[in-house]
Nucleic acid binder design. Structure first.
Lengths: 150, 150
DNA sequence: CATGTTTGTGGGTAAAAGTGGGTAATCGGT
DNA sequence: ACCGATTACCCACTTTTACCCACAAACATG
C-alpha cells in the first residue's frame, strides 16, 4: 500500500518530465515497481497512482459489465485518459502531452500527496481552486470530519 | 491475461493497416502469440481481442443456447464479423474492408484500451458518441476513483 | 564547518516507434 | 497454365522515446 502527503513545487522540463519528490518516493510501495498510472483527475489536475493502487481501481472497473451501455461509457471514459509510465534513472516521470494540455501545465507544477494518489496541478489553477471555495477550511472540516470522530 | 488502457491517435494507411501502439503491445499476453481477433464492436467501433482473451470470450459464447433465438442472433452477429489477424514485421494489423466500412473508418483512428479488448474508432464518431452521453467524466469518476469503491 | 552523498534539473544520443511504399508469393477465376 | 488481384514480407525514412551523462543545489554526517 502506498500513502502520500505534503505539497511540493517542482519544475517541468522541455520533455514534459517532472521529478517525483524524494519524500514521496519513499512512500511508494515496492509492489509498484516504479510503475505508475497517470490519469485525469478532478478540477483540472492530474492523478498519479502507483501501480499497486491503480490495480485496486482497475478491480472496481472490472466489475462493470460490457453488456451494459451505461457501463461501457464509464469504462471508456475512465480508461481513455489512463497512461502507464515508468520512472527513469533520475526518478522522473513523463507527463503525456494530452494530460499536460488538459491540466494546463506549463513550466511549474504543484505536487500534492493525497493518500493513495498524487495530484499534479498548475500552481495558479490550484490557487484559484482554493480561492473559489466559498467556505472556510474550518467549516468544511467540521462537516466532513465530525462524523468520523464520533 | 492482457489488459489495455489509454487512447491513441493513429493513422490508417492505404492498405488498411494500423500500427498497434507500443504501450499496448507491452500489455499483450505472450499466450496470444501476436494473434488477434477483430470483430464488430458496440456503437460503431471495432473490437480487437488478443487471442488469449478471445478464447475466454468464446468460452462464454459456447454456454449460450442455440435453442434461444436471441442467443442465436448474438452468436451469429459476433462470429460473422470475426476475423483472425496476425501482426506484421512492423507490428501492424490489417483491418478487413468490411469492418472498416462498418465502423466508417478512413484515414485516422482513435485506438482505445478497454481492459481485455482494444477498440478502434473513427475519431469523429467517438466524439459524437461521448457528446451523446448525458454524463460527465467527473460524475463517472466520482463513483470509481475513490478508495471506498474498492 | 568541511565534505561526501542525495536530489533536482538539463541535455545528448542511440534505439525504438510510427509511417509509407516496393516486390515477391499466393490465390481465384478464366 | 495464365493473368489480375490480393496478401505477405521486406526495406526505407522520420519522429519520438528511452537511456545515458553531467552538474549545481540541498542535505546529512562527523
Amino acid at each position: 500500500m502506498s500513502t502520500f502527503k505534503g505539497s511540493f513545487s517542482y519544475s517541468v522540463d522541455s520533455k514534459g518530465r517532472i521529478n517525483l519528490p524524494a519524500k514521496m518516493r519513499k512512500n511508494v510501495s515496492s509492489e509498484a515497481n516504479d510503475l505508475f498510472v497517470i490519469t485525469r483527475g478532478f478540477e483540472s489536475c492530474l492523478f498519479i497512482y502507483p501501480n499497486d493502487e491503480w490495480a485496486k481501481l482497475e478491480q472496481s472497473i472490472r466489475k462493470l459489465s460490457s453488456a451494459d451501455p451505461k457501463h461501457r461509457f464509464v469504462m471508456r471514459t475512465l480508461l481513455q485518459w489512463a497512461t502507464e509510465a515508468q520512472l527513469d534513472g533520475q526518478s522522473r516521470i513523463i507527463l503525456p502531452k494530452e494530460l499536460l494540455q488538459f491540466a494546463k501545465i506549463e513550466n511549474e507544477v504543484l505536487i500534492l500527496g493525497v493518500l493513495e494518489h498524487i495530484e499534479v496541478w498548475n500552481p495558479k489553477l490550484y490557487d484559484e481552486y482554493i480561492a473559489s471555495q466559498n467556505d472556510t477550511y474550518e467549516n468544511v472540516a467540521a462537516a466532513v470530519l465530525r462524523p468520523a470522530a464520533g
